[in-house]
């Protein structure tokens, strides 16, 4: 089980079960009521079954997949996990921002995969709010990552006004 940081704190109990691979719908029957994060192709294939599934559900997108595929269903999904197959693959940063800014997604966005301390700050700015750390990461060191910078120049999810607007407001005040 990976250690999860949620809202900048270490999560004691994670209710989500991430199905990295899922071939058939029997998994839903095996553990009714569990909260599952399923792969995108599984979700698209078994959407009908999932609609009737009694537990919570979410979807995870690999870095080459895009939120467009689930755009109509976002309101029913409590969590979207975005995968980093390798930390250098920056596509999931874009997916996170698109979910928040374009689709106005309000649920949890979780980083999964090669999730390392030195990428956490930018992830948080792009709209991730939970992080499944790679097994070798020290959670305490990771918590410090959210304080790497006190602010940023750009508009971001945690600071919707870019610095130039905040500077201006400050001068007006």
């Amino acid at each position: 089980m990976p250690i999860i940081i949620d809202q900048k704190a270490i999560l004691r109990q994670d209710r989500w079960t991430l199905l990295r691979e899922a071939s058939g719908p029997e998994v839903l029957r095996a553990a009714p009521g569990r909260s599952f994060i399923v792969p995108l192709d599984f979700y698209l294939r078994y959407r009908g079954l999932l609609d009737e599934y009694p537990g919570e559900k979410g979807v995870w997108l690999d870095s080459h997949e895009t939120p467009e595929a689930i755009a109509g269903d976002l309101a029913n999904l409590a969590i979207i996990a975005l995968n980093f197959p390798v930390f250098r693959d920056g596509r999931s940063f874009t997916n996170a921002r698109e979910l928040r800014e374009h689709y106005r997604y309000q649920g949890e966005i979780r980083a999964i995969g090669d999730v390392l301390r030195d990428q956490l700050f930018y992830m948080a700015r792009c709209g991730f709010d939970s992080f499944a750390l790679r097994h070798d990461q020290d959670p305490e060191t990771c918590l410090a990552a959210f304080r790497d910078f006190s602010t940023g120049y750009q508009a971001s999810i945690d600071e919707p006004a870019p610095l130039f607007r905040r500077r201006h407001d400050q001068r007006q005040a």
Binding site: F87, R88, D89, G90, F93, T94, R97, Q119, F121, Y122, M123, R125, C126, F149, G152, Y153, Q154, S156, P162, L163, F164
Partner: peptide
């Protein structure tokens, strides 16, 4: 300068 600020520490585009 406007572009410098926008591109510095841009959280989405650090792993292009």
């Amino acid at each position: 300068e406007i572009i410098r600020q926008w591109s510095s520490f841009h959280p989405e585009f650090a792993y292009l």
